[in-house]
Every structure is written in structure tokens, then in C-alpha cells.
Simulated assay, not measured.
Amino acid sequence: MTRPPERPRPHALPLLLAFDLDGTLIPEMGREVPAPTAAALARLRGLGVRVAVITGRDSAPRPVLEAAQPDAVATNNGGRVELGGELHREARFTVEELRAVLAHELEDARVVVFMPSGLYAELPPGRPPEAWMVERGVRPLADAPTDEPALKVGFYHPGVADFAARLRESHPHLVLTGAQPPYSEFLTVTPTGAHKGAALTLIAEGLGIELERTVVFGDSDNDVAMLELAGYAVQVGQLPLLTPHAHAQVSGPEALGAYLEGLADRLEGAEAPPA
């Protein structure tokens, strides 16, 4: 697969760096930013670079926030956007949409519904909740409040690809990610407009930075929407489907720190932009 047309890495301010979490800013399912990356981010922030975290998770781990000190955070695949610690946008399913999403017909699927009040799950018989669910205080899906909006639904099942195809046909406005490598048995469904490209646009606008002045880092299919919109797109890892959307590639989270140090070197060596 070919990459987009070559363009130079940004080397002057203003600049917004936006990072996916798992497999990008941190190792998969990790909780801490590698020390070289944290040091490079501190250096970049000192130069005036703005930082955003845009993740599929419903919350970013505190150690990540302490290390990255982002100006903006988007969770739920971009469905919830915070600027300066204040809620800016939150996408929610309608009652009809949620009903359609939960009519999945996936026998013994693990289904997790994310609501403002917490997690609600439907688990296969005899299968206990995973440790992260227990830590989050997961409750049975049957106990979910009927008057509270859902923000995201996750499915874990070998047949999610077929279900995703049916849901895309019946509800094309919903946002579906996963159900393909490297998450062949995991599907995430979010409401209309709840994707990382929309989040990047809102964050850039909120911070007063043009999209052409954004550098985005991602490793998976749910990052494509923001990679396509960014002024400069960096693929982290080797996933083939991202290659057509990225201008550059970093081998993995462990190599991200060195890449960011190189970006800081370019910014320090550039002439100050005209007033």
C-alpha cells in the first residue's frame, strides 16, 4: 500500500500533537507513558506545543494524564471531548439506536454498555467479569437505568464482523470500529459523529489551531478518521490498513520518545514564525 504524498514534518508553532492511547502513547492495555516519551512530551510542552489524547477508552488512566498533561482529552472513540478539563461535547445513543445495537443475536457474547453512571455488562454463562470490570464496579446489564443515555457499547465475540455488517446496513449513521485485525473479535459502537476525526476537529477549533498544524499518532482502524484529517499523520506499529493514511511510521510505543525528541529538535532549530 502506498502512503499519502510526501510532506515535511512540521517544524514551527503553532502545533497540536494528538495521540491515541493503547499501542501508541502507551503499550497495549498499559497505564503509564514510557519514560522517554514522557520526557519528550515535557520538552515539547515547554516549547509551546499543545497536546491532546484521543482514545477509545471511556477514561484515560491518571498516570497517563499526569505524564502527558494534555490540553484536551477525547474518550469513547471521540464521543466525549473535554477541553481544559471541561466537558465540550458528549455524544449519546437514542433509545431506538441502543435497542438496535443490543439486538445482536451473538450467542454467549460479552457485551459492555458504558453510561455516565458506570459500566453494565452481559456476560456468557459461567464466565466471571474481567479484572478491569471488577475494578470499575461493573453491574449487570439488566440493572442499567432506563432513563440514562448510553455512550458506547463494546462486543467481544468471534462473530462480530457479521453483526457489524448487518448493523452498518440498518444503521449506517452509527460509528463502528474493530471487527477486523488486530481486533477481529472486538467491536465498538458509538453514536452518530462519535469518532476520532470529529474529536480532532473540535479540539483543534477549541485550541485555535488549524487542522494543517496538527500531528496525529495512531495504530488501529479507529484512528483512521483522525489520521485522514491531520496535517501530518504518523502510524505507530505495522498494521497494513493504516499505511495509506500515514505520512510516516514509528515501530511502536517504545520508539515514540525518540521520534518526539526529533520533532523537538526541529522546533528548537527553526526560526521563530513571523508575527
Rank of each mutant, 00 (worst) to 15 (best):
N222V: 07
A67T: 04
L227F: 07
A39C: 07
N76I: 14
F217L: 15
S184W: 14
D219I: 11
P182Q: 03
V51S: 05
F19Q: 02
A264Q: 07
R99L: 10
R136Y: 01
L200A: 05
D108V: 04
P240V: 11
Y259T: 09
I203P: 00
T146P: 13
A144V: 07
Q180L: 15
T94K: 12
G154I: 15
A258S: 10
V64K: 01
G78F: 02
P70L: 11
A100K: 08
A42P: 01
L241N: 09
V113D: 13
D71F: 06
A230I: 01
L123E: 10
D58E: 14
P63W: 09
P70N: 02
V64M: 03
N76F: 14
R3K: 03
G193N: 12
R168W: 02
H245V: 00
L15A: 09
A142N: 09
R57D: 13
R213Q: 14
G30W: 02
W132C: 06
A42I: 02
E32F: 07
P145S: 03
E205R: 13
A109N: 03
G252N: 11
V216P: 02
T192F: 10
T177E: 14
G206T: 01
A150W: 00
R80P: 00
G178C: 09
R99D: 12
G193R: 14
L202W: 13
S117E: 14
A100R: 10
L167M: 05
P5E: 01
T24D: 13
V112M: 13
P5M: 00
L13W: 09
A131E: 15
A233H: 11
A131Y: 11
L167I: 05
F163N: 00
E268M: 11
L187V: 05
A91F: 03
G262Y: 00
R62M: 13
S117F: 10
A233W: 12
V64E: 01
A38I: 02
P140C: 00
V111T: 13
A39L: 08
R7V: 10
A67G: 08
R110F: 06
R166E: 15
T146N: 12
W132D: 14
G262C: 06
R99G: 14
T214M: 10
I54H: 04
V49E: 08
H88V: 12
L83C: 04
L102M: 03
R92M: 12
R99K: 11
P125R: 00
G257M: 02
R166Q: 13
L229I: 01
P4W: 07
L227C: 01
E212T: 15
R45H: 03
G48I: 00
G252F: 00
D20C: 06
T146M: 14
M1C: 02
T94S: 15
E90Y: 01
A258W: 05
P240A: 14
A100I: 01
G197V: 09
A198P: 02
E86M: 04
T192M: 08
H88E: 09
A179W: 05
R89S: 15
V215D: 05
L83Y: 04
A38E: 09
L187N: 06
G137D: 05
G197M: 02
P158R: 03
E148P: 15
A18C: 10
A164D: 06
R136V: 00
V234H: 08
